[in-house]
Amino acid sequence: MTTINALAGERALPQARSFSGGTLAFARREFRDAVASRWFLLYTLAFTVLAVAVSFMSLSSVGTHGFAGFGRTTAGLLNLVMLIVPLMALTAGAGCIAGERERGTLLYLLAQPVSRTQVLLGKYVGLAAALVCSLCVGFGVSACVLAWRTGSVGFGAYAMLVCFTALLAMAMLSIGVLISVLSRRSSVATGVALFVWLTLVFLSDLGLMAGTLIFQLRVQEVFGLAILNPLQAFKMGVIVNMNASLDVLGPVGAYASQAFGDGLAFMLAATMLVWALVPLLAAVVLFARRGSA
């Protein structure tokens, strides 16, 4: 029987790269492709312009003093982030595998000495890095404007908003990648991603309200259902980190503050982390099990 040793003869046979080396090679390529793409430029530009606009509006309503620029802007940016970041991350994730599959490039990549897990994780890491860079540009420019006009008051809450936004982006990217793995065509993946975005941003709130009214849900049940939506977990997490009372969210917020106290911020961050890891893990398993490219 022919074996590797017999084949080697006098020269060393080619070896596959280590798991991390191969994954990083894919991550670097995905990052380069993403930052050079139109969607990245468009989203980055849109997010930056809107973030700066929100910053200026926050400043103009309080002069250069008051509930300090960063704190007020954080509150203003919260809603902007909840709309734009999930859209960016879901659509980016949705295209990553389905697009390669449709172009026929996936099969060629898988014929290289790499595993399916490496391909998927590499793409995820590269896209996540590109998304975080995009967000850092928007938040960074906005922070420069605020620091110039108001100093660093409330910067802590702003920094936490950036961290929670990065977590949100990763959670949404995971969901997008899962959609991509399950879709044969990139147009279908994008369509499903848009539907998921619509559901998370608008429909889940309406559904929760309707469910509460119809089924007479208790407050703890409403809270449990609310944090099933990563956007709600994100919103509560940011508000908690602004040292603002969750009472602004009504009885559910008040219940959460009372029931979980100081641990609430960690619990919400952990919820976001679970949202980032579980869909990604599901995507890895399903992609590895697929019978074909």
């Binding site: 084949l7 070896q15 596959a16 172009r103 099969l107 060629y108 014929a111 000495p113």
Partner: peptide
């Protein structure tokens, strides 16, 4: 991975970005 490291594959039509 180890098996494919021993192989150079040329497809019918090269698919690249």
């Amino acid at each position: 991975r180890q098996a494919r490291a021993l192989v150079g594959y040329v497809p019918q039509e090269l698919a690249f970005h």
